[in-house]
Computed example of a mutant assay.
Amino acid sequence: MCVALFLWQAHPLYPFFLLHNRDEYYSRPAQPVAWWDNGEILGGRDGLAGGTWLACSRDGRIAFVTNVREVAKGPPPKSRGDLPVRFLESKMNPTEFAEEILKEAHQYSGFNLILVDLSFKSMIYVTNRPKDGKALVSEVPPGIHMLSNASLDTPWPKAVLLRSNFKKYLEKYGAGELPAEELTDKLMTDTTKADKTMLPGIYSVEFEYSLSSIFVETNTEKGCYGTRSISAVSAKTNGEVTFYEKYLEEERWKEHTVSYMMEWMGTS
Score class of each variant (00 low, 15 high):
I114E: 02
V233L: 15
I114C: 10
V137P: 05
E251Q: 13
L13N: 01
R22H: 04
T237A: 14
E181G: 00
P94W: 01
A105T: 06
S210C: 06
F17R: 05
S229G: 02
T154R: 03
K193V: 04
S268Q: 09
K158C: 03
E70A: 05
V71M: 09
P200F: 12
K158V: 01
T66V: 05
R163G: 13
G47V: 05
K103M: 09
A4T: 15
A55L: 00
I101Q: 14
E206R: 07
I202F: 05
G43D: 06
S231P: 00
G51Q: 09
W264G: 08
T95L: 15
V205G: 05
R228Q: 11
Y203W: 15
L113F: 06
L88Y: 04
L115A: 09
K254H: 13
L161N: 09
Y26C: 01
T218R: 04
F111N: 01
F215N: 10
R61K: 13
K134G: 07
S151R: 10
K236W: 04
M188C: 10
T220E: 05
E245T: 07
Y14D: 03
E139A: 13
S268V: 05
A4L: 00
E182T: 15
K131F: 08
S90T: 10
R129H: 13
W156E: 11
L161W: 03
N219C: 03
